[in-house]
Amino acid sequence: MSSMPQPRTGVIHDIGYQRYEGPRLGRGYAARSLYVHSVRSSFGLGRSAWAKVLPIGLLGMASIASLILVVINTQLPEPVLDYAGIASTFTYAATVFVAIVAPELVSVDLRTNLLQLYLSRPIRRSDYALAKLAALATATFVLFAVPMLIMFAGMAFSTDDGIAGVFDELGGLCVGLLAAVVHAALLAAIALPLASLSGRRVFASGIIIAVFLLTAPVSAALEAFSYDSAAGHLAGLIDPSRLLAGVDQWLFGVDLRLVNVGGFGAVYGLLTVVLIVAGTACALWRYRKVKS
């Protein structure tokens, strides 16, 4: 840290203990502070260099991928991937991201007993759970949004249709960001309650990765057995990544052949909402029970 210029009086005045007479902002402010702090620490800000490597690295890789997409999209007559498509394809990177970040946000607090210090302050247990959940969702949203913004910047500058082309891209970006919100909310609502089960980061990451990885082959196998039947269309519900791809397909018409929802798009949408609500409820329940 750089040292402040010291007044050259040569005397250190100990003014003694000063009582604090200023404002004391309540619970809402405290919860917001925890939220902001948690978003920052998701990317390792305010923490050691090692803590930045994985989250910033993932964000960097996603950004580079998006730059490459800009180049490919501008060279080909039809763009290969639009904004909502980014949401669908980057879901796998985002699952890795939440598996790294969620334990960082909640397991560490359990392990170091820091939770005890939070709970002895004006925030409530539910405030803690919601602030952490919101922080994880926000950080995950950033992971989706940054590549989309890069793509938007690249596409808007290289459009041949003038201002109309820019507005076209802007419309696409808005759709993409909407998809990013859905993806971030679901991934966070699944990962955070899982991470809060263990105080050990490695275990917490393992549980999250396991849920995402183990559901994928089951879902794929089910689909392979019954392709183009109702069961095949519904097979994607089991795997969170394909569930999200299904929602993208239903809402935004993204078809990357990750999943085939057939006429069941609304079921994908409904299950997504149910999972987000259930995940939030689980997180709240978990922190009502946790020992302080």
Partner: peptide, 18 residues
């Protein structure tokens, strides 16, 4: 892995100090 000054500042904010 937090710096002491930042940690104590953070806890002060959780207690409601601007």
């Amino acid at each position: 892995d937090m710096i002491a000054a930042e940690f104590v500042t953070h806890m002060a904010r959780i207690s409601g100090l601007p």
